[in-house]
């Protein structure tokens, strides 16, 4: 089991006492599996995913277990946590400009993990970086390595972030609306690259999205979250047909679909 979250409860400290944001979340991701997490804003999707890397304020209190590759992230030591964050898991956020240092060249950001975490030699790292940029569909990768983030469009930057996430060959990718800002053809291109990594080396993915058609088409399993709870778990290709919970059905009915598109 790659990622296993059991009975995760999270309370944020607020001036008027504490507020519970996660009410006992259970989910798991197997090796080579793409798992979707859907729900409206504020339902706790991002909080759950961030908790998998112990990314929450120190004042928050968290109970339950989060196992990444058998290591309990919530209780393990700093070294083990560092290894989980830098090697085993990569996270992709929605806004690529927030993940890249604006005054560093793309190539430096891209090879950072390889050089500093995995100890790969600089030249080898650059060669691999260039290769990854080509794999995510960027033209003239050698030139791109020397450019700065402001010279890129949002779609191009997101592909850089995805290339950077794949660079250290993580076992698990946490994608928080990673392709939501991309147009449909670019989105397909990026997802195809991720799927290749999933097939070839058993990469697992936890995939937050608000596009339910995408979740249905791309994910093996989909969890539906509402108010800090997982309310339903469905097979991706059965998402629209098999939903039983009232909340899931409401959410599905809010989705605009192309006419002629079968649900």
């Amino acid at each position: 089991m790659l990622l296993e979250i059991k009975n995760l409860q999270l309370d944020f400290a607020t001036p008027g006492g504490s507020t519970r944001v996660l009410h006992g979340v259970d989910l798991h991701v197997e090796r080579g599996e793409v798992v979707g997490l859907v729900g409206e804003s504020g339902s706790g999707k991002s909080t759950t995913v961030r908790a998998a890397l112990r990314l929450y304020p120190q004042s928050a209190s968290c109970t339950g277990t989060v196992n990444v590759n058998g290591e309990n992230v919530l209780t393990c030591g700093e070294d083990a946590l560092h290894s989980v964050r830098s090697r085993e898991v990569a996270m992709i956020h929605q806004d690529p400009r927030g993940s890249l240092n604006p005054v560093r060249r793309i190539g430096d950001s891209l090879t950072e993990r390889l050089v500093h975490v995995l100890g790969v030699d600089k030249f080898a790292a650059r060669a691999k970086g260039t290769e990854l940029l080509r794999a995510v569909g960027l033209t003239q990768p050698e030139k791109r390595m020397r450019q700065y983030p402001h010279e890129f469009s949002g779609g191009m930057l997101q592909r850089v972030v995805i290339a950077a996430a794949l660079s250290s060959e993580p076992q698990l990718i946490l994608a928080d609306e990673a392709t939501s800002a991309l147009d449909v053809t670019t989105q397909a291109e990026v997802l195809s690259v991720l799927r290749e990594a999933q097939r070839s080396r058993g990469l697992g993915m936890l995939f937050i999205t608000h596009d339910l058609h995408l979740a249905a088409a791309y994910c093996d399993r989909v969890y539906v979250m509402f108010k800090g709870r997982i309310v339903e778990e469905l097979e991706g290709n059965n998402l629209f047909a098999a939903a039983r919970e009232e909340y899931t059905r409401e959410l599905l009915s809010a989705v605009p679909s192309l006419k002629g598109q079968r649900l």
């Binding site: 053809t185 291109e189 997802l191 195809s192 799927r195 088409a217 192309l258």
Partner: peptide, 17 residues
């Protein structure tokens, strides 16, 4: 191309690419 890129039943990113 644009219409076939929209995720839906039978959508396959490799094919779109």
């Amino acid at each position: 191309l644009l219409i076939s890129s929209v995720p839906g039943l039978g959508w396959d990113p490799d094919e779109v690419m």
